[in-house]
């Protein structure tokens, strides 16, 4: 090297600083830009009234209901399976070909793009099982999508419960399931919840997998078999069809704020979890 190390250092570090600042600036810009344009248009009426004229006017109430219904149903379906799988992998079996296959399956599932989930949900739930465009089809599709996340985070959470707790429980005459149910799961709960929260965030933001399975009806749903339009789908339609930029920004703001709040609370949970463990 001919260039003196000191100069390389200065050059390299300043490039790094620039790149970091650019990254942060871009990311902050996106939030500020959307919230800046959206917040002024948000009021109680927007949140609690029905859309009019395809969404050009009025509010987004049915899409909020749709998002909540779809997300909750998906979580209720995926969580027992995800946590159950994690319990099986950590407590009921030892590392073997079977556990490797299960983990491999979960990893592959995690790598499948959401549009493929959409295609699958459409052909399987909507068409083959005749569920039609409905909350049920959409949430089952979403459940498939978030299953790997819940498995992974639950597994981590369960593994972090000290082995000695299990030993104490067994030594006091507990069966394996009693130990899992009374000691392991309660202590892994914050970690499991973190995974669930992350999945909620992902479900709320998802569009491609939902638009072909839950449809895009703007009516407030009354049962699991009704078609719904989620906030993300509504936002996509508003933006793509150029119906109303004003409403699009406002919807995006509600979307972003709810996801940020959910992710923040999962952080808070995680931190509490870590704090308690180190205490």
């Amino acid at each position: 090297m001919i260039i003196r190390p000191k100069y390389t250092q200065v050059l390299a570090v300043s490039l790094l600083v620039l790149a970091t600042l650019a990254t942060l600036a871009i990311l902050v810009f996106i939030i500020v830009f959307v919230l800046g344009k959206g917040l002024p248009n948000i009021n109680a009426e927007f949140l609690f009234s029905n859309p009019e004229d395809m969404g050009r006017a009025g509010g987004i109430f049915p899409t909020i209901v749709g998002t909540v219904a779809l997300t909750l149903t998906a979580i209720c379906i995926a969580t027992p399976f995800g946590v159950g799988t994690a319990v099986f992998l950590t407590e009921y079996t030892r590392e073997s070909r079977i556990t490797r296959i299960i983990r491999f399956g979960a990893d592959c599932l995690a790598g499948i793009p959401s549009i493929i989930f959409g295609l699958f949900g459409f052909i399987f739930f909507v068409t083959y099982l005749r569920m039609g465009w409905s909350i049920l089809s959409g949430s089952l599709t979403l459940a498939f999508m978030i299953l790997p996340t819940i498995i992974r985070t639950s597994e981590e959470a369960i593994k972090s419960v000290p082995y000695s707790y299990r030993e104490v429980s067994f030594s006091l005459g507990a069966t394996l399931w009693q130990t899992v149910y009374k000691v392991v799961l309660p202590n892994a709960l914050p970690g499991i919840l973190t995974g669930v929260m992350l999945s909620v965030g992902r479900s709320i933001g998802e569009t491609a997998a939902i638009i072909f399975t839950a449809g895009s009806s703007l009516r407030t749903p009354h049962s699991l078999f009704d078609s719904v339009r989620t906030m993300s789908v509504h936002f996509y339609i508003l933006a793509r069809e150029g119906l109303s930029n004003e409403k699009a920004y406002a919807t995006a703001t509600v979307l972003i704020v709810s996801i940020l709040m959910i992710n923040l609370s999962s952080y808070w949970l995680m931190n509490r979890f870590i704090l308690r463990k180190t205490k």
């Binding site: 000695s164 707790y165 030993e167 104490v168 429980s169 067994f170 030594s171 006091l172 005459g173 000691v183 202590n187 308690r276």
Partner: peptide
């Protein structure tokens, strides 16, 4: 059997 034979470990391990 374990219900009839209790054990106290070297380090105190209260359950949380």
């Amino acid at each position: 059997l374990r219900k009839k034979i209790g054990i106290v470990f070297a380090l105190p391990i209260p359950l949380p």
